[in-house]
């Protein structure tokens, strides 16, 4: 999986490509844990994300909880496969998807 982080002021855009699964989720979690300190607006760009497993969902969920306390978080460019997974798990209710 490829991760790309782009800062603009207090806005951080995280672009993910490939598979966010058991193997790759810890990497994302580790990266995010060091980068969210001064972030007020977090954007996940899922344009090239092919697959998300429950481990990946956990990281997204945990990040949402962190951002709830200090700002906002949204997902953009979510494709149908990923959207279906988010719907099945009920995540669409608590995540902001554009």
């Amino acid at each position: 999986m490829d991760m790309n982080f782009k800062n603009a002021g207090n806005e951080l855009t995280v672009s993910l490509a490939g598979r966010l699964d058991t193997t790759t989720s810890p990497e994302l979690e580790k990266e995010l844990s060091t980068k969210l300190d001064d972030v007020g607006s977090l954007i996940f760009d899922f344009k090239d994300l092919e697959y998300i497993s429950s481990a990946g969902l956990r990281v997204v969920l945990a990040t949402q909880k962190t951002m709830n306390k200090k700002g906002s978080m949204k997902l953009i460019n979510v494709n149908n496969n990923i959207l279906e997974i988010l719907e099945v798990t009920g995540m669409t209710d608590i995540l902001t998807i554009e």
Partner: peptide, 9 residues
């Protein structure tokens, strides 16, 4: 009809 996963909030 789906609800949220358990443990989320």
């Amino acid at each position: 009809k789906h609800g949220m996963v358990l443990g989320a909030m």
